[in-house]
């Protein structure tokens, strides 16, 4: 089995993908289409080589066809990307050209009896399936991101490739930061809160915890009880606080995508079957109208220095 691997990188967040690629016995080539700094960071993690193309202002996706051609010549046995949109487009281009299989959400790779074993997450990570593959395989990495390893720095070789005519014709900064990005603690509420006036209840808990206040999408989008810059999830904020406390939030996958980076997730929900208990670390089954005042009290009773950030 050819386990020479190409890792396609177009943006940060490649540490986890790098780790599973490096676990293979073959030669690891990092193909970076992005700024020089990114290429150097990847090189410092210790692949065998880095091939670097500077896209300038052009979207990295423009190099799909050219990379596919290069891969068809080099014939890596495994091609890997993150789920980053641009890296995925490059992966698809290479996979299509090489007639490779494409397995999404891989969390580990191994070689056994000269076959590639791919473990992939299914049902939002609640189960892991093991697949045995032959021939070239492309995978997207679906595990947690990890900090980049540091290894023997690899040489960075600039590569000139032809680009398709894609162009960014306008770019506008998105709304200003909400303060959620670097909050250490976030208390967030959802439709379990029945009336606008009751928001103060959750606000009180957030204040006691020294936490930022956030919400689920319907609270901001449909009800307008908090500003749209304050909802968490796939289409809202993606945050990584030490503590995310979800109050009256169901735990829809689109919401939970926003707190994948949180260290501890706790939830208050009156439905013991609520989906959020499948992914939370801690939970209280109970009516938030009873539980939140008690939580606020319990937190207030903590020695004050404990809550310094």
């Amino acid at each position: 089995m050819n386990t020479d691997c190409w890792l396609l990188v177009t943006a940060d967040g490649w540490g986890g993908a790098f780790r599973i690629a490096r676990a293979l016995p073959g030669r690891l080539t990092a193909v970076v289409i992005g700024p020089r700094l990114l290429a150097e960071q990847v090189a410092a993690a210790g692949p065998d080589e880095v091939r670097w193309t500077d896209p300038g202002p052009v979207p990295a996706e423009a190099w799909g066809a050219a990379l596919a051609g290069a891969a068809a010549d080099a014939q890596p046995g495994v091609v890997l990307s993150t789920t980053d949109p641009a890296a995925r487009v490059l992966l698809g281009a290479v996979a299509g050209r090489m007639h490779a299989r494409l397995v999404p959400a891989a969390v580990a790779l191994a070689v056994e009896d000269d076959r590639l074993l791919v473990r992939r997450a299914a049902v939002g990570g609640e189960t892991i399936e093991t697949l045995r593959c032959t021939g070239p395989v492309a995978v997207t990495y679906g595990g947690d991101d990890v900090a980049a390893a540091s290894g023997a720095a690899a040489p960075v070789t600039p590569v000139e490739l032809a680009a398709a005519p894609l162009a960014v014709i306008a770019s506008e900064p998105l709304a200003v930061a909400s303060g959620l990005e670097d909050a250490d603690r976030v208390v967030s509420f959802g439709r379990g809160v029945r009336a606008r006036d009751d928001v103060s209840l959750v606000q009180g808990l957030a204040a006691a915890l020294g936490a930022e206040l956030a919400c689920s999408m319907p609270i901001a989008d449909d009800l307008g009880w908090l500003d749209k810059s304050r909802y968490v999830g796939r289409s809202g904020n993606q945050i990584s606080p030490a503590l995310y406390l979800a109050v009256g939030i169901g735990g829809a996958p689109q919401h939970m995508e926003g707190v994948r980076g949180a260290r501890v997730v706790a939830a208050v929900n009156n439905d013991p079957e609520a989906r959020i208990f499948r992914t939370a670390d801690y939970g209280i089954v109970g009516d938030l109208y009873d539980v939140v005042p008690e939580l606020t009290k319990a937190v207030r009773n903590l020695p004050s220095k404990e809550l310094e950030q």
Binding site: P272, D281, D287, E294
Partner: peptide, 28 residues
Amino acid sequence: PESLGCAKPDSTPARVFAGEPAETAAQL
């Protein structure tokens, strides 16, 4: 590709407290 089967990931399930609000709040 051939599937060798599925298994639960080895993550620990949520610790869920139920009961009197004051008690569960203290536990959390």
